[in-house]
Amino acid sequence: MFAAKFEYYKVNSVAEALQTLRAHNGAKLMAGGHSLIPLLKLRLARPAALVDISGILDLQGISVDDTTVHIGPLTTHQTIAASEAVARVCPLMAEVAGEIGDPQVRNRGTIGGNVSHADPASDWPTALTALNAQFVIQGTGALHRRVTRTVAAADFFTGALSTSLGEHEILTEIQVPVMNTAQHSAYAKMAHPATFFSVVSAAVVISMSGNRCTQASVVLGGLAPKPVRAASVEEALIGQDLTADNIAAAAAQVSNDLAGEVMGDIYASAEYRRAVAPVEVKHAIYHAAGLAHS
C-alpha cells in the first residue's frame, strides 16, 4: 500500500516537538509508527504532517526508584519485556509486553505510541489501568510556557482511539507503582487469531496474606471502548480466601461491571464477550495467585 503525501519533521526534543505541532495544523506525532503507518498506507489517516519523535533521547528508557517505575514513552515493548528491573518490580508489565503482537511489533512498537493510539483491543491500556499508572503530559500554556500535568490511567483513556492528550500535547513519561512482595499479578487474554489483539482480556493485581486476598485491582480490556475496572469483582475478592468457589463467584460478578457499552464484531459478538469475560478474569486470578487451574 501507498500512503498519501505528508510533510515530515524529525525533532530532537520535547520543546521542538511541541513547537512543530503548533506550527503545523493537523500534524501528528509518530514514534515507532506501528499504530500509524498501517493507517497511512490504507489512506485511512491523512495527516498533513508527521512529527517524528523517535529520536528524542529524553523519552526513552526505564528507571526504577523505591516507589515507581518510570518509563519513557519511546521505550519499545521488547525493551520492557526484556528488562530485568521491570520483571523484578512490576512483573505484570513484563508479562504484558511479551504478549503484544509479535517479535517485530515488539521490537519497533513503543508503549507511548500504543497508549496514545488507545486501541481498545490493545494490551497496555488494560494493564496500565490495573496498575494505576500515571501519565505525565507536557503541553503549551499561555505565553508559550511549557505546562506539565499528570493524569491517572482511568482518566487518560477516554474512549476508543481517544485519550485525554490534547492536540498540542505530548506524553513524556508513564509512571507505574512498584509492586510489593505481597502483590501478585497476571494478564489473561483471548487473542484474535489474526492480529493477536485482545477479544477479551483481564489484568489482575492482587495482594495476598496467606491465601486471603487483601486488595485487588481487576481491569478488563478488549470488550469496551476503554478499559473497564471490574469493581464488583474486586469487592468480591477482597477479604476472601482464594478458593475455587470464591474465585468463580467473584469472577461471575464481572457482569455487573459490564453494564456499559460492549463492542462486537464479526469474530466475536458483544454477547459472547460479556459471557466469556468471567473466564478470562478467572484465568488471570488463578494465574496471579499461583493456583493450579480448575
Binding site: M190, Y267, A268, S269, Y272, A275, V276
Partner: peptide, 12 residues
Amino acid sequence: TPEKVWRAIHQQ
C-alpha cells in the same frame, strides 16, 4: 470460532 462452539455448548 470459539463463539460458535460456545453457543452450541450453551445452546444460545
